[in-house]
Design a protein around this nucleic acid. Structure first.
Length: 295
DNA sequence: CGTTCATCCTGAGAGC
DNA sequence: TGCTCTCAGGATGAAC
């Protein structure tokens, strides 16, 4: 259930434990884990054997291992994916989908994913070293290519709710449901306000808050990282202690004490402070369609 | 074209 | 104990 900070923790784990090593055998269980690799799991296996991992990279929530010759192994954790570094003797996890063995005979890399929304694929890298198959994913808030002014203009051009835009990975990547709610809370903006009706400074502030909350999560998540255990839950301690809005329904807003509310939006939960983040009036409110009222 | 919706999965926890 | 229902931090193709 990772967003940018959690994925970055995983990337660091890969950099520490996998970069510099050469793949020998890759075991793929079932075809679903490699469904994004159009040439099929067998092709993927063959192409990976003997390749050396030269870097572990990330854009937003996407990870990829640089395999030299401008080829990368793209990894996405989806909602429940984990990458684990473990001794070969460790018992298989229940939802183990891929196992990577290395020429040095050291610990193996495993991809474990309960809900199987995640997966992996091989892809060509462009001149900047980014997989061409994720060209539609915008730079994330923490990378040098992120162009704040351009993104602010793009956001304010959208005729859509601000939270929806923050979650749109083609506008800015890395933000998920948690950090969207936290950034909006810090900005005192309700997620259903229309992006095109927010001022540019306001949008800039939302993006800055999103970057801040992610950096803070990263700081905390990075400290409890076990070198031999690359875990998407590496930043989980952060969630318990530091979230102001997300998951805090009924608890007092840290700013004004008003109980945090929970609302349905985009078929998922949104948390906000009723006082600090008043709902927009009619124009940007939810369109209540009688047919969608029941499922 | 831009925006929104339904859908892919499994398991945990609540309520009955 | 077991059933049903709701919920979960994501991304996509297809529909509007």
């Amino acid at each position: 259930m990772p967003e940018l900070p959690e994925v970055e923790v995983v990337r660091r784990g890969l950099a520490e434990n996998v970069v510099g090593r050469t793949l020998t055998d890759v075991e793929l269980r079932g075809h679903r884990v490699s469904r994004r690799h159009v040439l099929g799991p067998q092709h993927l296996r063959e192409r990976l054997a003997g390749r050396r991992v030269s870097a572990a990279r990330r854009r937003g929530k996407y990870l990829w291992l640089d395999l030299e010759d401008s080829v990368g192994l793209i990894l996405h954790l989806g909602m429940s994916g984990q990458l684990l570094i473990e001794p070969a003797a460790a018992p298989d996890e229940k939802h183990l989908h891929a196992r990577f063995r290395f020429a040095d005979g050291g610990p193996e890399l495993r991809f474990v994913d309960q809900r199987t929304f995640g997966g992996l694929a091989l892809g060509d890298l462009d001149a900047r070293g980014v997989p061409t198959t994720i060209a539609h994913i915008a730079p994330d808030l923490l990378e040098p290519e992120f162009d704040r002014d351009a993104v602010v203009r793009r956001v304010t051009s959208k005729h859509s709710a601000i939270k929806r835009v923050l979650l749109d990975q083609s506008v800015v990547s890395g933000i998920g449901n948690i950090y969207a709610d936290e950034a909006l809370w810090r900005s005192r903006v309700h997620g259903e306000r229309l992006a095109s009706r927010l001022s540019r400074p306001r949008v800039a502030a939302i993006l800055d808050h999103a970057a801040d909350v992610m950096r803070e999560a990263l700081d905390q998540g990075g400290t409890s990282f076990d070198a031999l255990y690359v875990n998407v839950n590496g930043a989980s301690g952060y969630f318990d202690r530091s979230l102001a809005a997300y998951g805090q329904e009924g608890r007092p807003c840290p700013r004004c004490g008003t109980p945090i509310r929970r609302e349905r939006f985009m078929n998922r939960s949104s948390f906000s402070c009723p006082r600090c983040q008043p709902r927009p009036r009619a124009v940007a409110g939810p369109r209540v369609l009688p047919s969608s009222a029941r499922r």
